[in-house]
Design a binder for these strands. Structure first.
Lengths: 214, 214
DNA sequence: GTCTATATAGCGATAGAC
DNA sequence: GTCTATCGCTATATAGAC
């Protein structure tokens, strides 16, 4: 085939397909040839729409971050300074987005990169906190430390994925049912730890906020 | 050279050299050939001591975790229930270990894997918290959530490394000095966020601890 | 039983034809 | 804008030297 009348590929379609592939088979399944095959195309064709493979993975991560809801920060103001519920809502939304694509986790850690939605999120959080009465310098710290906790939770909870690990469990737990129970139990523990940590963190921040405003 | 009288390689020496290589040139510099060259040996020779390259990286990560100090947890008891300072000390030690080898960060995120020291750490934390009066179920959550925050901080603070990014900054900030200032500033922000978050988290946990014991 | 040598398969990426 | 062809790279398996 030579040049088709209408493009077969687009950057969006590539990113979309790559995310589906990551979800289904993990990050290592994404190679130029494999992904191209999924798109009904030859490997090098991708490079007309994407600079490098690393850049593509970055775009896939950003697509996941696009699902994070920061809308509540936009409603904050001196009259409605409910920053606590905004942070809580955002943290849960972030966790849910990563949980829905847990194979992406290792890539999440590879630096901030150039990820528009990461910036959008950081900006929304910072703006909301300032609007709710946090000093700018404090708001920077709070935004960062909340991000630390949320991403750390995502990593700790979902990294290394259980599904693909089933074979490993098998050696020690010959009954697959038990392996599933183990994974579920681990998930419940992670959920509890996240909720407990989020509450403790927000409680601690309320103390700090009160200390700043007396 | 054929078989030498005395082994040139050992697993420890390989891991040690790999860590030095990671520190100096980053994770991507570690390939079988490159690492073997560093050891004065041919690439495939490594496979006599190491299963796969991934397993080696896991061992390198574990070597970093070996530097994390958990000794204070061993001193906790009903008579000395100072779990707060033990957690604080441990968190700072963890951060310091990762900071000393920040190029390792992306690997830190690739699942728990089989890392003996990670288990040692989790066990020490859990044991100390229980000795200090935390119920077992709560201690599990607290250990996990603290790990979330600490690893998330390490990732957020050190991922993507600044040194190798200098070229990227260059485009927007033609003066290298400014790039350095930027990196330093970013480091100070991360440090502030970590300290603020650690304090808030521990404050929140003290509230919880008090709630459990009345 | 530890190393070297060789070979396979797959990777990202580029060049040039159409 | 997609193709074919190709380069140089990688991890890893296997065979054989000593």
């Amino acid at each position: 085939m030579a040049r088709p009348r209408r493009p077969l590929l687009s950057r969006d379609r590539i990113v979309e397909t790559a995310l589906a592939l990551v979800d289904a088979e993990g990050l290592t399944a994404v190679s130029s040839r494999r992904l191209a095959a999924e798109l009904g195309v030859q490997g090098p064709s991708l490079y007309n729409h994407v600079g490098t493979m690393d850049e593509l993975i970055d775009a896939v991560v950003d697509a996941v971050l696009a699902e994070v809801d920061t809308s509540m920060f936009g409603t904050l103001s001196p009259e409605n300074p409910s920053w606590r519920s905004a942070l809580e809502n955002w943290a849960q939304s972030y966790r849910a987005a990563v949980a829905a694509h847990h194979e992406i986790v290792p890539a999440l850690a590879s630096g901030p990169g150039r990820r528009p939605h990461a910036l959008r999120i950081a900006d929304a959080v910072f703006g909301g906190l300032v609007a709710a009465g946090w000093p700018r310098r404090e708001a920077t710290s709070v935004g960062a430390l909340m991000r630390y906790f949320v991403t750390g939770s995502a990593l700790g909870s979902f990294a290394g994925g259980f599904p693909s690990d089933a074979a490993v469990y098998d050696r020690d737990y010959p009954h697959l049912n038990e392996a599933h129970l183990l994974a579920e139990r681990q998930q419940r523990i992670a959920r509890d730890a996240f909720d407990t940590g989020l509450k403790a963190l927000l409680d601690g921040l309320e103390l700090r906020y009160a200390g700043l405003h007396d």
